[in-house]
């Protein structure tokens, strides 16, 4: 259909304009996903065509900020996929405890729910005090939200259930204070966290991590970009470090796949192999 081809071309030009003007590179994102997000914005703001939207993006930085929120997936929750956090407690924490200092990178942290969840987990496991969590996202708006740690109170019931299913050892209410229709996460949970602007597509290595958590982020990338990001993660991990992906992110496509040991198949938790010479560690 000609209409369809024209529309796809218009989207390509929009992405090109975004890249050239603002430096955000969506050109290697999954197209079906982008198209849904862009069409939604087109409908909401009443643009006659995507080209019209492209004009607006070029001339209006505020509009671009809104579109940027549309283009990234910021849907998240505390202890999302509780079985993942349970697996971290049972399979990963033992290893982390052997290090005097632990660096954790949450890549694509969105509004921070997963960061606070990990902080709680590390605290309950007694290793939070020697941990440093780097929480990064390319979107300043959601990063600011993560930094503040204020969330809508109507989600707390679901979060509490998740927390309990994840193997939580206390009452979830210990970790926040409620006021009116919002909760503020305890300040201690932010103490060991650095929130930083980082774009997986255009920025570089984030060094010497013991654990990298990046769940359901590269699922929106095309194969080429996925490979590049996995390479970035491998270079950012110490030998024996852990890479945590989303449940449907197998990494079997990556040339680094054989340098990883899949320690939990369902939760897609990988451990980076020690170099071949280091036999004691590979036993």
């Amino acid at each position: 259909m000609d209409d369809l081809e024209n529309q796809n071309l218009e989207i390509k030009l929009l992405l090109e304009a975004i890249f050239q003007k603002y430096g955000y590179d969506f050109r290697n994102y999954s197209m079906a996903h982008l198209k849904r997000r862009i069409s939604r914005r087109q409908l909401l703001d009443g643009f006659a065509s995507i080209s019209e939207m492209t004009n607006r993006v070029i001339c209006d930085a505020d509009f671009f900020d809104r579109l940027l929120l549309d283009l990234s997936i910021n849907v998240t929750e505390m202890f999302r996929d509780p079985t993942f956090f349970k697996a971290i407690r049972h399979q990963v924490v033992t290893f982390l405890k052997t290090y005097p200092f632990i660096k954790v990178w949450v890549a694509g942290c969105a509004s921070g729910e997963e960061v606070y969840s990990l902080a709680i987990l590390l605290q309950e496991e007694g290793i939070y005090d020697r941990a440093q969590i780097y929480a990064t996202d390319f979107n300043q708006v959601v990063l600011e939200k993560a930094r503040k740690g204020i969330y809508a109170i109507d989600r707390i019931k679901a979060y509490t259930e998740n927390y309990q299913k994840s193997g939580g050892q206390r009452s979830f209410a210990d970790y926040y204070s409620a006021r009116y229709d919002a909760v503020l996460m305890a300040a201690a949970l932010r103490e060991r966290v650095v929130f930083a602007d980082h774009n997986l597509v255009t920025d570089g290595v984030f060094g010497q991590m013991h654990m990298i958590v990046c769940r359901n982020v590269i699922i929106y990338f095309d194969r080429q970009l996925q490979k590049k990001v996995v390479c970035l993660f491998m270079e950012s991990l110490i030998d024996g470090g852990f890479l945590c992906m989303g449940q449907k992110e197998s990494l079997s496509f990556s040339e680094y796949f054989d340098q990883l040991v899949l320690i939990n198949e369902k939760e897609k938790i990988f451990q980076k192999r020690y170099p071949p010479g280091d036999r004691s560690q590979n036993e």
Partner: peptide, 9 residues
């Protein structure tokens, strides 16, 4: 005609 997965809204 390849498949994609998404966790959007």
């Amino acid at each position: 005609r390849t498949l994609s997965l998404s966790r959007e809204e």
